[in-house]
Simulated assay, not measured.
Amino acid sequence: MDRDEGTTTSGTRGLGPVLTVPNLISFTRLLGVPLFLYLFLATDATGWAVVVLVVGGLSDWVDGFAARRLKQVSRLGELLDPLADRLYILATLFALTFKDVVPWWFTIALLAREAVMILCLVVLRVLGHGPPPVHYVGKTATAVLLMGFPMMLLARFSDAARPWALPSGWALLWWGIVLYWVAAVFYFIQASIHIRASRLAS
């Protein structure tokens, strides 16, 4: 799940091998994003859209597990993994908001968190630092959100599933967004400590 353990923050290391098993899994996950948007927004295949979301969420840990098990950890993989996570969340969020499955206030709360993260990364880059390692709280939040979105879809488009899918979906989304913001605070603290340590060392 988390392939950023033990990485440096200087951002100077090469991308490493490209055609590895974990990287191919990450590329496949990325292809699932436009596939989901097509199925959900351009067709009536909502059931298949839910399947794509579920597979994308469940496979979140597979690429990291494969990287460690096969000893194929690479800088490219460390970049692809969080990129796929963010694209899945943002694409799903916009699609579900557009279809009135998720309210706008939830979308704004999640996008505000992303804005904070982008600002932190920009500040780090300006100061000559790479991004801090991915925290397990952030990975957990991502996994919970990617479970909550399919539940909300089921609740909206399946009368039989609505009685249990709607409360389950909202419980997961609330849990996910709280953890998402907690992870942002952790990232901010990590970045501050790293910047302070670099200044003291210089």
Rank of each mutant, 00 (worst) to 15 (best):
V62W: 15
V62E: 09
V62I: 06
V62G: 10
A66C: 15
A66Y: 07
L70M: 13
Q72F: 13
V73K: 10
L76T: 12
L76C: 08
G77I: 05
L79W: 03
L79M: 10
L80P: 12
L80C: 06
D81A: 12
P82W: 06
R86F: 09
L87N: 03
I89V: 00
I89T: 01
L90Q: 02
L90D: 05
T92A: 07
T92Q: 03
L93G: 02
F94Y: 01
A95Q: 01
A95S: 00
A95G: 00
L96C: 10
T97W: 13
T97A: 02
F98N: 10
K99H: 15
K99T: 08
K99N: 07
D100T: 08
D100G: 05
V101M: 12
V102F: 06
W104Y: 04
W105N: 11
W105S: 13
F106C: 03
F106Y: 00
F106G: 09
F106N: 05
T107W: 04
I108K: 09
I108G: 01
A109S: 01
A109T: 01
A109Y: 04
L111I: 05
A112T: 00
E114R: 10
E114K: 05
E114W: 11
A115T: 06
A115P: 00
A115C: 10
M117T: 12
M117L: 08
M117Q: 00
I118F: 13
L121R: 01
V122K: 12
V123Y: 15
V123T: 14
V126I: 14
L127Q: 05
G128H: 04
G130R: 10
P131H: 13
V134C: 01
H135S: 14
H135Q: 08
Y136W: 14
Y136S: 08
V137Q: 15
G138I: 01
G138M: 15
K139W: 00
T140K: 09
T140D: 14
T140F: 11
T140Y: 12
A143S: 07
A143W: 10
A143K: 03
V144E: 11
V144Y: 04
L145N: 11
M147V: 06
M147H: 01
L153Y: 06
L153R: 03
L153V: 02
A155Y: 05
F157L: 12
S158F: 04
D159V: 09
A161H: 07
R162T: 00
R162Y: 00
W164Y: 08
W164M: 14
A165S: 09
A165Y: 05
A165G: 07
A165W: 08
A165M: 01
L166P: 09
P167T: 08
W170N: 05
A171M: 02
L173I: 14
